[in-house]
Simulated assay, not measured.
Amino acid sequence: MNDLPDSSVPCVFCEIIAGSVQCAVVMEDATTFAFMDTDPGSDGHLLVVPKKHSADLTDISAEDLTATILTAQRIAKKVLSELGADGVNLLNCCGIEAWQTVFHFHLHVIPRYRDRSKDRMELPFEPGIPVGPTALAEYAKVLAAAL
């Protein structure tokens, strides 16, 4: 099974950045572009993307990643103060199995509210179910050796 995106399909985020696809722009600077998500999980849910195309977290340059996360942080602060959110999630999905559907690196800035009428998001996993120390040690050993 091929889990790679179809490279013959134009990148909708590149088209949004170029202005050929309409969006509700939140902000733009020399490196990043932020716009409202058209299928939001909560009121005020938006996306922050680098202007330079990179497919995902493993493909983005350190410079573009830094600029994108700093823009997301700046916006997250305003989501809290201006939209009255009670919290905020930053989410990146890297790969089809991780729910990535647009293969242009992006961060979701998702306002979170106690008021469930403003917040339709639910956790996709059940936190609080610990993994044994042997499994944790093995994952750590494999990753530490690779780094």
Rank of each mutant, 00 (worst) to 15 (best):
S117I: 09
A72E: 00
P111S: 12
V79Y: 00
D86T: 03
G132V: 15
E97Y: 11
C23S: 15
T68K: 03
G87K: 11
V21S: 04
I129M: 09
G132N: 09
L80I: 13
D119N: 12
D115C: 14
P124F: 09
L83P: 01
I96T: 12
E97D: 04
L65C: 14
R114T: 15
I129D: 02
L90H: 08
L90F: 12
F33D: 01
G84C: 14
H45I: 04
A24P: 03
Q100V: 10
Q100Y: 01
M121W: 15
A98E: 08
P124H: 14
S81M: 12
D115G: 09
R112N: 11
D29W: 08
E82F: 12
P130H: 05
M27I: 07
I60K: 01
S20T: 12
V88S: 02
T71R: 01
L90P: 01
C93T: 12
Y113A: 02
A24H: 09
Q22I: 06
R116P: 02
D115H: 09
H53Y: 07
M36R: 04
P40V: 13
K51Q: 06
P124N: 10
S42G: 10
L83E: 06
H53R: 13
G87R: 08
F103T: 01
P50S: 11
K118G: 02
E122A: 13
F125E: 02
Q100H: 07
D115S: 10
S54M: 15
P127S: 08
L65S: 14
V49W: 00
T31M: 04
A18Y: 07
D43W: 07
L123W: 03
L65N: 11
D56A: 14
T101R: 07
D39I: 15
E97M: 14
S20C: 05
H45K: 07
R120K: 14
S54K: 05
P130E: 11
I69C: 07
C23H: 07
W99T: 12
E122M: 14
